[in-house]
Design a protein around this nucleic acid. Sequence first.
DNA 1: TATTTTTTCGACTTTTGGTCGATTTTTTTA
DNA 2: TAAAAAAATCGACCAAAAGTCGAAAAAATA
Lengths: 201, 201
Amino acid sequence: MKKGERRKQELLKIAYRMFIEKGYENTSIDEIIAEAGIAKGTYYYYFESKEATLEAVIDMMIEEEVGKAKEVLAASLPVSMKLVSVICSFRPAQDEQVIAKVLDANENIVMHEKANRRLVEEAVPLLTEIVREGISQGIFDCTNTEERVKMLLILSQHMFDDGVFTERDVEVYVDMVEKTLGAKSGTMSFIAELITGGQND
Amino acid sequence: MKKGERRKQELLKIAYRMFIEKGYENTSIDEIIAEAGIAKGTYYYYFESKEATLEAVIDMMIEEEVGKAKEVLAASLPVSMKLVSVICSFRPAQDEQVIAKVLDANENIVMHEKANRRLVEEAVPLLTEIVREGISQGIFDCTNTEERVKMLLILSQHMFDDGVFTERDVEVYVDMVEKTLGAKSGTMSFIAELITGGQND
DNA sequence: TATTTTTTCGACTTTTGGTCGATTTTTTTA
DNA sequence: TAAAAAAATCGACCAAAAGTCGAAAAAATA
């Protein structure tokens, strides 16, 4: 029972890396098993299908990101910092981004989109909680919090996705965050530095 | 030269219908050619690859939607109406929506996403023009118009995509449109009726 | 040790996107 | 109008890749 789980994790890691490096569609099961040094039957002993593998890989990614987000949530930080930290923690890691650029942007749509949808699902409750905290502190002022958070999250996903975003994009984004959540103008502008600071073009 | 073009259009229509009915990935070339009653070689005489067909299908869709949008743009309507009409015209048609629900939402990610990206590309300039007109009339008030329009368009895409959107979603969306474009509160609330009016759950 | 369960193997099948040379149909040209 | 050229069609064939399955090896259990 132990060995099986380890093997599954091992396969998951290989698949994860290859999916990101070469794209989901461009990675064949044959390549994965070659890399892992196992037979096809073994692979299918652990995964029902290729798509099930993708699903599992995404679960792994989401779990990690949500984990990080929860840490931030638990820390004693000002609400606005929490919010931004969490959102930024959802940004694709450095290496993923770099590698992603080698690929055609169209090359990995399915994985990207599936991951995004799952992330929105998982992250909205967390972010909503933060924003509610902010409301009770008078930092934010809005109704329909959950819906607002969802929309903002969708927006940030798209900004990061495209990889490149201009200063103007960020400016507009910050403005929308402030206005959507009913924050005072300028209070969220520190987002800009955090975002553009971490950008690598 | 004439006949060829007609055949291509015919194939395009078949592909379009089948892609929407059964999803892009679930539609095989063999099925398309069976439906069209032609041989494989003939198909590949007109299309370089399956993906090229998807691209062409999407072009067809976009062309139609942009066409409708341009009509609206040319008409003599109040700016706010123009804006909303155009955005609503991008909503998937009734039948597409109904059929889409039969499918797993994950079933047609690639086509959906590619279409969305192309639409944003094509539609942003048109909408930006409308908003600029609105600014000069004092209805809107904002800078970085293009970026704002893009963000709002992305949002509406996502709302329509999911198929279901609650009243709250729409409420938040309207609020974001107003605030993002610097319109007076309430001036855009008629969007709500138009959107929810056309919804079919 | 005997038996059952878990894990592994790899040849085989099926599906599917794509190729290619031959053939027919249509258009151009001499 | 006949010959030549170009456009369109055909379908057998190919290669890649996902997925199957029964048998065998390894590990756990009685």
